[in-house]
Amino acid sequence: MSTNDTTRNDDLLEIEQLLAKYAVTMTKGDTDGVVSVFTADGTYSAFGEVYSLDDFPRLVAAAPKGLFLTGTALIDLDGDDRNAATGTQPLCFIDHTQQDMRIGYYNDTYLRTEAGWRLRTRAMTFIRRNGEHNSGRPHAISFSGE
């Protein structure tokens, strides 16, 4: 195995662990843990909106509670920039109250930082019962007081 292969495998493993931390901390409702997997300028997109890290405490609080079950991400490290990557990760969220499911996938960008790999952007695409793939209804999440 060459040094480049070792570095590539190390990068893939680190990103996979980062994504596992996202799923576990979302499942546990650990806002600080969720925020820690993003770059300082990181964003999350869904429901026709782009949310900054400042919005995460309210987003996590407003999100339904349950199991964030994610699959292995398809990660592309083959770009010219060795400090950036892209990926897609499947998701099945199961609400704990009724066991209702939401399925879809995240489209991600990753950035290597001094602290290691982090999510820079995460955009949710839902797969609807009719087979349509979309980002959700605009303003599906409202924050009290707005």
Results as ranks from 00 to 15, higher is better:
residue 31 T to N: 08
residue 94 I to C: 08
residue 38 F to H: 03
residue 92 C to P: 02
residue 104 G to Q: 02
residue 73 A to V: 00
residue 19 L to F: 05
residue 25 T to H: 01
residue 37 V to Y: 05
residue 121 T to W: 02
residue 78 D to H: 10
residue 131 G to V: 08
residue 132 E to K: 12
residue 33 G to N: 08
residue 65 K to I: 03
residue 101 M to C: 01
residue 122 R to M: 07
residue 116 G to Q: 11
residue 66 G to P: 05
residue 101 M to H: 03
residue 124 M to V: 11
residue 114 E to I: 00
residue 18 L to Q: 00
residue 145 G to D: 12
residue 13 L to S: 10
residue 94 I to M: 15
residue 85 A to Y: 01
residue 141 I to V: 15
residue 116 G to F: 13
residue 10 D to Q: 10
residue 124 M to N: 08
residue 34 V to P: 01
residue 122 R to E: 00
residue 27 T to P: 05
residue 140 A to V: 10
residue 122 R to F: 07
residue 20 A to I: 09
residue 85 A to L: 11
residue 64 P to F: 07
residue 14 E to L: 05
residue 141 I to M: 14
residue 74 L to D: 11
residue 19 L to M: 12
residue 7 T to A: 12
residue 17 Q to C: 11
residue 117 W to G: 00
residue 47 F to Y: 14
residue 7 T to S: 06
residue 87 G to L: 05
residue 60 V to L: 02
residue 24 V to F: 14
residue 67 L to N: 08
residue 80 D to E: 15
residue 25 T to I: 07
residue 125 T to P: 00
residue 27 T to E: 04
residue 3 T to S: 14
residue 103 I to Q: 02
residue 16 E to I: 01
residue 38 F to P: 00
residue 132 E to L: 13
residue 132 E to I: 13
residue 126 F to I: 10
residue 36 S to F: 03
residue 120 R to D: 13
residue 55 D to E: 05
residue 10 D to V: 12
residue 37 V to A: 06
residue 56 F to E: 06
residue 87 G to R: 03
residue 30 D to L: 01
residue 85 A to E: 08
residue 98 Q to C: 03
residue 131 G to E: 04
residue 114 E to N: 13
residue 16 E to D: 13
residue 85 A to G: 13
residue 75 I to S: 09
residue 35 V to Y: 02
residue 46 A to K: 07
residue 89 Q to E: 09
residue 136 G to Q: 01
residue 140 A to I: 12
residue 37 V to D: 00
residue 97 T to A: 13
residue 116 G to P: 07
residue 134 N to G: 08
residue 90 P to C: 03
residue 48 G to W: 01
residue 48 G to M: 00
residue 110 Y to L: 08
residue 27 T to L: 05
residue 101 M to N: 03
residue 129 R to W: 05
